[in-house]
C-alpha cells in the first residue's frame, strides 16, 4: 500500500489549497497515470488532472511528483514511492492552478507565440521538397521532439523569479527554427532571442534537461542558439559580451578576471551601464570583498592555451 499525498484545490469550494491522502495498492506495471485514474475512478471522482494519449507524446499529463515535474503516463508508479511509502503529487510550478493538478497554460503558450514559431523561408518553395541533408536534419531532430508538456517550464529556476524570461520550451522551439537549414530569418531570430528575456537570461542550471521527458532537452538547445548568435556576430548585448569576456579571460590567464568581466559585459563605452556598476563595486570594496586589482595567471596557463588552440582547430 502506498499513500498518495495530493495537493487539492477547488476554487468553488475554498480559496486555499490543502493536501489529501489516498491509499492505493500499486499493482505491477501501473504507471503513475494508471494510479491517478484508479484514485479518480474508485476513490474520489472529483480528483482533477489532464491526460490523453498514455504514451508520452501528447504532453497532457505533466504533474509534479515528489517535488519535480514529470509525465505521469511515462513513469512506473512503484518507482516513485519514497522511503516513507508516499508519493506527493502537486500541480506544475510557475503556472496558476485551475483545479487540483490542472494548471493554466496561457503564459506558456503566450511565450511560444513570441518566438515566431513557424518556418520563414526566404525563397519561394520549389516544385518538390526543399533539400535538407541528414546532417542538417539532425540539428533540429532533438528540438522537434518537444511535446509542450510544460515540465521544463514548471521547474525552471529563472521563471520562478522572472516572468519576462521566455523559458526553456519556447527557446527549444526557437532553436528548431534557428538551425533549420530551410529558414531564412536566422539573423533576425538570434537578434530577437538575444534581447532581455531571451537566451542570455538562462542561468545554466540545466534543471530543464533533468525534467524533459523527451530528447528536446532545452538547455542544450539554448547553448546551440548562443553559438549561432555569436557566429552571426550578434554580440552587442550584455549576455554575449559576458560570454566573450569570460572566454577571453580564461584563455589569457586560466581564470576569471572579475574586475574586467563586469565592465566588458556592460560594454566599455556604455557610460550609463558602467555607472550602474559603481554602487556594487564600492560596496564590495568597503566590505573587503573586491577581487585583487592585479589579476594573475594560473601556473598551468600554457596548458589552458593549448586546450583553446586544439578547440579552435
Amino acid at each position: 500500500m502506498a499513500t498518495f499525498r495530493i495537493k487539492r484545490y477547488n476554487p468553488e469550494k475554498q480559496a486555499e489549497s490543502y493536501y489529501e491522502e489516498f491509499e492505493l495498492d500499486i499493482k505491477h506495471g501501473m504507471t503513475l497515470l494508471d494510479c491517478m485514474n484508479e484514485i479518480k475512478w474508485t476513490l474520489d471522482g472529483s480528483f482533477t488532472y489532464r491526460m490523453s494519449c498514455r504514451s508520452a507524446i501528447c504532453g497532457s499529463c505533466a504533474v509534479k511528483a515528489n517535488g519535480h515535474s514529470l509525465l505521469a503516463c511515462q513513469r512506473q508508479g512503484a518507482h516513485l514511492v519514497k522511503d516513507d511509502d508516499t508519493i506527493v503529487l502537486e500541480p506544475l510550478g510557475n503556472m496558476k492552478p485551475i483545479k487540483d493538478l490542472a494548471v493554466d497554460f496561457k503564459p506558456f503558450w503566450d511565450k511560444i507565440d513570441k518566438i515566431n514559431p513557424y518556418l520563414q523561408p526566404n525563397e519561394k518553395a520549389p516544385k518538390e521538397e526543399r533539400k535538407q541533408s541528414p546532417e542538417q536534419f539532425r540539428l533540429i531532430d532533438d528540438s522537434s521532439t518537444c511535446i509542450m508538456c510544460g515540465a521544463c517550464y514548471s521547474d525552471c529556476n529563472v521563471l520562478e523569479v522572472d516572468d519576462n524570461f521566455l523559458g526553456p520550451a519556447a527557446l527549444a522551439k526557437a532553436q528548431r527554427f534557428v538551425q533549420d537549414s530551410r529558414d531564412g530569418k536566422t539573423l533576425e531570430r538570434v537578434r530577437d532571442l538575444s534581447k532581455p528575456g531571451g537566451i542570455w537570461d538562462c542561468t545554466h542550471c540545466a534543471e530543464c534537461v533533468e525534467r524533459c521527458p523527451k530528447p528536446a532537452q532545452p538547455f542544450h538547445r539554448i547553448k546551440e542558439i548562443m553559438t549561432v548568435a555569436l557566429d552571426q556576430g550578434v554580440t552587442n548585448n550584455n549576455g554575449a559580451r559576458h560570454a566573450l569576456s569570460f572566454t577571453k579571460s580564461v584563455k589569457s590567464s586560466g581564470s576569471l578576471n572579475e574586475n574586467i568581466i563586469p565592465v566588458e559585459s556592460v560594454g566599455i563605452f556604455n557610460i550609463k551601464g558602467l555607472f550602474d556598476l559603481l554602487p556594487v563595486g564600492l560596496r564590495m570594496f568597503f566590505k573587503g570583498k573586491n577581487p585583487p586589482i592585479f589579476h594573475k595567471s594560473i601556473d598551468d596557463v600554457e596548458d589552458v592555451k593549448r586546450i583553446y588552440m586544439e578547440l579552435d582547430e
Binding site: E129, R130, S133, P134, Q136, D141
Partner: peptide, 17 residues
C-alpha cells in the same frame, strides 16, 4: 511537398530528399 514547405520536419535520404 506542401507539408514540407510549411516546415514539417522529415527524415532525409543522403541526397537531401
Amino acid at each position: 511537398y506542401e507539408l514540407e514547405h510549411l516546415g514539417c520536419v522529415f527524415s532525409r535520404t543522403p541526397n537531401g530528399k
